[in-house]
Design a protein around this nucleic acid. Structure first.
Length: 261
DNA sequence: ATGGCGCGGTCACCGCGA
């Protein structure tokens, strides 16, 4: 079973990129973020035609939006609202083999890393707090928590730890929340564990760099966390860096894991 | 230290991303 996550930054604009990736990499389940469309306009029949006949879509106009496209059926579907908002940042599915998948789009948090000056940063920290509380309440086994967390948790998840310490995505309050999430949810950061501790690994490169590859100022904002009890079934972990070089790419690239259950 | 680009949409400007 091959599962991937990808912040697509408009699914309508990039449905061809998505299907090319799904076919080439033989993905069974894809979790998308920032689909940026209401459900009525989601190109679902397009994906149905390629065998992704099971889906769970939750979007809104212009912003946010999450979706799961799958070849494998779901036993249950549900979502949760955070911070008293009805924005579309989370969905959850349960498979017949009792694996559950949470797909998250955590708020970006704006520019200023100060909750008193920046309500978006406050929202992000509140979201993380509620996310941890939710995951603490569930059964700890057989879970995957994945998506765009908008947090680069460790030193080698950014191009420069020193120059990003005060930049939203890599500040102490955010990285502390990430560590709390691992601890209180009993998760493994399987992507980081798969690489060497001092390897720089990224899943996002800004659109604003003239040559993203040359400057290589990336951050690891997208994550796949997994319950410790199923860690032993992981067969492979991949970050598809070459996708960033496609025509009209998303600023994020997909990540996948293969589970042999 | 700054700005750089790209998305959707009450569409030549703005909010938002991070």
């Amino acid at each position: 079973m091959k599962i991937a996550t990808w912040n697509i930054n408009s699914v309508r604009l990039r449905k061809e990129n998505v299907i090319n990736f799904l076919k080439k990499e033989s993905i069974d389940i894809l979790c998308l973020q920032e689909t940026k469309t209401v459900d009525e306009n989601f190109p679902i029949t397009f994906f149905n035609d390629y065998g992704y006949i099971h889906s769970y879509i939750r979007g809104e106009k212009s912003y946010n939006g999450v979706a799961i496209l799958s070849k494998i059926p779901f036993k249950n579907k549900s979502f949760h609202n955070f911070c008293n908002l009805n924005d579309t940042r989370h969905i959850k599915v349960e498979l017949r083999n009792n694996i559950t998948i949470h797909n998250f789009y955590v708020p970006a948090g704006g520019d200023i890393a100060d909750i008193n000056l920046n309500p978006k940063f406050k929202h992000k920290l509140q979201f993380m707090e509620e996310m941890i509380n939710l995951l603490k309440k569930e059964k700890f086994k057989n879970r995957l928590v994945l998506g765009d967390f908008n947090i680069a948790p460790f030193e080698n998840d950014v191009w420069s730890h020193k120059s990003l310490l005060n930049v939203v995505s890599h500040t102490k309050p955010e990285t502390n929340y990430f560590s709390k999430l691992l601890k209180y949810g009993a998760f493994e950061d399987i992507v980081r564990n798969h690489f060497k501790r001092d390897d720089k690994i990224y899943s996002w490169w800004s659109y604003r760099n003239k040559d993203w590859k040359k400057s290589n100022r990336g951050r690891r904002l997208d994550h796949i966390l997994i319950s410790k009890n199923i860690q032993k079934y992981i067969q492979s972990v991949k970050i598809y860096k070459s996708i960033r070089d496609e025509k009209k790419p998303s600023d994020h690239v997909p990540i996948s894991i293969t589970l042999k259950l």
